[in-house]
Amino acid sequence: MAGDVTATEDAPAAVVDDQREALLAVFTEHLGDAVVGSHIKPGQGLWIRVATGAWAEAAEVARDKAGLRWFDFLSAIDWLPSPYGRYEDSAVDVPFPPPMPDRSAAVPGYTGGDTRIQVLASVAKAGTDQRVLLKADVPDDDPRIATWIRSYAGAAWHEREAHEMFGIRFDGNGDLRNIYLPTEFEGHPLRKEFPLLARVVKPWPGIVDVEPMPGGDDEDEATEEGSEP
């Protein structure tokens, strides 16, 4: 049984792998050294990290050369660990404001990263399983990167969201008004240093108000007070 499973997993993986290698070759051919890193999960996905300066060019290549005309999403990730820890698990009170973790504590995902915040965008070819996740570093001191709206008009709203949530400027996108947040909102909520003030003034209620799960380990404690032997 186990042998069968591995056999079926291996067979299609090799085929799909070729497809993604070919897709990656299109990008390396047109972008050259601007392709900083890449990662292929056979049968699952292709990650390409490009240089910050080649971000707009990567979009052009994806759309015109690789034929990935369907824009899925554009967003960003702040790889820094949260200075607040995981509130609900934290056994000690976190001072406010907490010390920011060192920049080197950021652990980027596939294909690595040299900066704290990365933009990422997914494009695909409709009707096929061809899909690429493109990433690029955003400079720490001046979070600024080129816009994608010349290649994918639909990226405009996604860039507005990335701007309000992470404070990334998209050069060339002249309409970076807030899209979800109120106009007068201050701060960038998806940055790790953004405090959830409700949690600062009140601890996570789940920690004091735990109901025992039926059949769980906590059940013994719950019935301890009962008269059962």
Partner: peptide
């Protein structure tokens, strides 16, 4: 009261 979003940055409590 904000419900499950009691700690959100965008929800009115």
């Amino acid at each position: 009261c904000g419900g499950p979003y009691w700690d959100s940055y965008s929800v009115t409590k």
